[in-house]
Design a protein around this nucleic acid. Sequence first.
DNA 1: AGAAAAACCATATAAACTTTATGGTTTTTC
DNA 2: GAAAAACCATAAAGTTTATATGGTTTTTCT
Lengths: 225, 225
Amino acid sequence: MEDIQTIRVLAVDDHEMTTLGYKFILEDYSFNGYRIHMDTAKSFEEAETKIRQSVTGLPYHIFLLDIQLSSGREGPVKSGEDLGILAREICPDARVVFMSSFSDNYRINSIMQSVDPDGYMVKTEIDEESLRAMVETVLHNPPYYTQKALMAIRKKMANRIELDDNDKRILYHLSIGTKTKDMVNHISLSLPSIENRKRHIKSLFGIEKQNDQALISEARNRGFI
Amino acid sequence: MEDIQTIRVLAVDDHEMTTLGYKFILEDYSFNGYRIHMDTAKSFEEAETKIRQSVTGLPYHIFLLDIQLSSGREGPVKSGEDLGILAREICPDARVVFMSSFSDNYRINSIMQSVDPDGYMVKTEIDEESLRAMVETVLHNPPYYTQKALMAIRKKMANRIELDDNDKRILYHLSIGTKTKDMVNHISLSLPSIENRKRHIKSLFGIEKQNDQALISEARNRGFI
DNA sequence: AGAAAAACCATATAAACTTTATGGTTTTTC
DNA sequence: GAAAAACCATAAAGTTTATATGGTTTTTCT
């Protein structure tokens, strides 16, 4: 980010108060060598429009994206994650930062893979100081993760067990209460295979001969769900 | 870490100046509610002795470990990584922090899996302020990673390709210049298998029909080495 | 430039692992 | 305590991975 005078930020959150908070804090602060101009959007569609317009107009340097966006219209529900993917496509040079209420492993892992954001802030950890530190870091030396995000990331990194997509799907369905016998409708494996894999994962987790409750809690412990 | 008055730290580095630096900075600073007492060790053996003695005496709360330790005697070369594993075994409640010259992905990934340290500092990024911040964070809200460590971690997290241990070993040996035909001495696979795996990894990386140089650089890009 | 080494490729066979079908036992659930 | 679901075991089929072998291409060194 060369010697730009004004850093243009687009903050997207369906709670207007939130983006307003960001705006007041960041526009008022005098950063070293630049100042912030903040735009806001309240929905996926509004944000998409502004992002697309920015290509021919003034470009954004930073996107602050909430993950939960109320779906403005019918059709497939679009999340902040999709918005992040879109932003990466359209403005590959801009920084993408997630501002999320979630600090669960599954969400963070998924976003780290699909978007690889330059920052991830858990909302309960956001204050004036961390907001400013995030902007500085993200511009000059990304990434910036708040502590709770770091804890999820650490859990994932410390994990030496590798599960393939089918294993992860099984764990996910277990966690949302899908019955094993019904998983054949969601996963292209036979029932004995699924049973086998569950047994295998349990042994990887060191909880042989225990029930599914133990499997779920261990998977959660290890950051898979 | 309840209401302890003195936090006992053991710093291990074969450069005495380094541990002395830590000692002066941390013992002089007045933390909120505690002060630091620093012990130092210059070799694996000396550190091991002090760790084992601490069990029956005054326990350590934090270990600051260099990864490169000159091997004091013959026998298998022990690294700071081994020391970390040992510390975890003997003092499971203590914090383990690596102070490393390395910021390469392979080293960091390996340590994140084998020790899962509460902190990782790249030496070029250590100064008085970061040292103090590390102590505070590691005691109250681990983990603490410096920016370069974070960058390696981010790369790894963003990666969706999963390689098994043999694949990683092949990449590692490639990176240190081991000839493919000699890898059979380090990896329990036949030569054709190794060739096959290399081809397979290249296709995963999207660099089919290219040479080993391309493979190494792509593996480095993706955070495997 | 040319010989030697290493890398690379292709094929066939062997070995290891996964999936599946089937039929049974144990545990949960209501 | 009956029904449902989970769990287990075995054998056969299918798939993947490893290996042996022998060849071609590329790199390296002089």
